[in-house]
Amino acid sequence: MTILQVNQLTKIYNGHTAVHPLDFSFEANRCIALLGPNGAGKTTTLRMLAGLLAPTSGTIQFTGLNGGTDRRQWIGYLPQYPVFYDWMTGKEFLMHCGQLAFLSKAEADIRSEDLLKRMRLETARNKRISGYSGGMKQRLGIAQAIIHKPKLLLLDEPVSSLDPIGRREILTLLESLKKEMAILFSTHILTDAEEVSDELLLLDRGRLIEAGSMKKLRGKYQTTKIELAFQNDVAHYQEKLQNLPGILEVQINRDMLHVDATDISVARTVILQAAAKENWPLTSFVINRTSLEDMFVKVVDQHATMDHSIS
């Protein structure tokens, strides 16, 4: 079920287009990563969705939200560097946020206690937020974002400022929150996106350059290479491989041969047959998929060249 539909969302600041017309939709209980290098327009997009920034044009529509209701009721938001009322305690801040989102005092109390426990903040619940560590603030930030059980949780770079342990903690948390709400989080770190998200939105310089499930993107951009190593000089085998059917390109890279082929499974058979027949002194035979990082660079590059050729 689609819960959110974004149509032609655009943001222009003083003649500079921060976000080009953007279209995408959201399914309930999906986790989507908004991926892109710094300055790609991720924060701007999130803030527009959160209702903190008025779009220059375009619409943001929740399905099932009748005209009079405030969109913010359904949204939870955690900025990249959350700042709290430091003079409040963690519990007080959660109560405040919950009641602002129209929870009754009793509801807010139950929900706050529940979240404090879940975020492992119950021992710090009556301490002033000014004494919280960075990781504790991040967890409190997530707690305030979901206190009113939003349908869509927006997180701006939720893990980029955390140490590996804190990072792991938040990612695990996102995994479990997926069952309760749709999540959109921005990141510039691909492995984080890969780990928890079902779908990717790839943003570069304000444009949505690719979108889809991980699987779909892999199929589209991921290439596979065969890497070969030999006991003796590899140059000799470069030519031999080049002449085999179905092989596109053979490159030498640090005493290894990198083989590109139209169909990897065919190439594998062809190469292994040749090796067996001629008794090649093979020391290693590896089928290597390009990393997501490479894929990311490739997509952005492709997009940049396209841009270039147009202008």
Binding site: R72, Q73, F102, H148
Partner: peptide, 12 residues
């Protein structure tokens, strides 16, 4: 300070 972001993103 940025704390208004957390407050005004609630239906205030």
């Amino acid at each position: 300070s940025g704390v208004s972001e957390l407050i005004l993103v609630k239906p205030v």
